[in-house]
């Protein structure tokens, strides 16, 4: 599975969405859509570090890096290319 696929699966597994939810697009801000709670941020960092093998540092702490599936995937790609 690609990194983006793993990220999508992780995000969806942490969404509290009932059966009739409209779905989450790659560009959708999952915080603004209200699909995740405040724990999600810490869980996302743990996921990126434990499953995708990157280390998220203070320099990476731009909220724009972590707001949507696409942005997280871009961030991971940049980290892995360094």
């Amino acid at each position: 599975m690609t990194d983006e696929g793993m990220i999508r699966r992780f995000v969806e597994s942490h969404m509290v969405a009932l059966e009739d939810h409209p779905g989450l697009g790659d560009q959708d801000n999952f915080f603004e859509r209200g699909f995740v709670d405040s724990l999600f941020a810490t869980q996302l960092i743990a996921f990126l570090e434990s499953r995708l093998g990157i280390v998220v540092t203070d320099e990476d702490l731009d909220v724009a890096n972590f707001c949507s599936i696409a942005r997280v995937a871009e961030f991971v790609g940049r980290k892995k290319s360094v």
Binding site: S38, F40, A41, T42, I45, D58, E59, L61, D62, V63, F66
Partner: peptide, 8 residues
Amino acid sequence: KPGGGFPY
């Protein structure tokens, strides 16, 4: 970074 205080 600025803006990262909550929730990170």
